[in-house]
Amino acid sequence: MTEQLASGELTEAVGRAVLATAGVAFLRPGLAQLVRASRTMARVRPGGAASGGPSYASGVRVTRDAGNWHAEVHVVLRRGHRAVDVTRAVRAAVTEAVRRAAGTADDPRVTVTVTGLV
């Protein structure tokens, strides 16, 4: 019940681990980026300006509940990689990142959702 949001550093560490995984194109854009994009859309002329670069925080949410870590990751994958193989590699990378950053030997729960393929 007492779910706590992880620190920015931990979330960033997880984001970096996800992005370093082969087959991951980018993290799903967060809500803040969506709102900003739709607000500026009408006036944004140069193509692609709204999509911006990768933001570690955007597709990653790490929480802790009763001592157990839970990382939820939303990713867009590159085609040409088998999706489930990439999600497994993401899981391994995230598990490792949480352990190291949180200094724990316990396996965190890792939920990986593929939101798109490019």
């Binding site: 990986v112 959702t113 593929v114």
Partner: peptide, 15 residues
């Protein structure tokens, strides 16, 4: 669901 029953991996329908 992606992968086996005990995995926690998912894919959106459109993708």
């Amino acid at each position: 669901p992606l992968g086996e029953d005990d995995e926690d991996a998912w894919i959106v329908e459109a993708a």
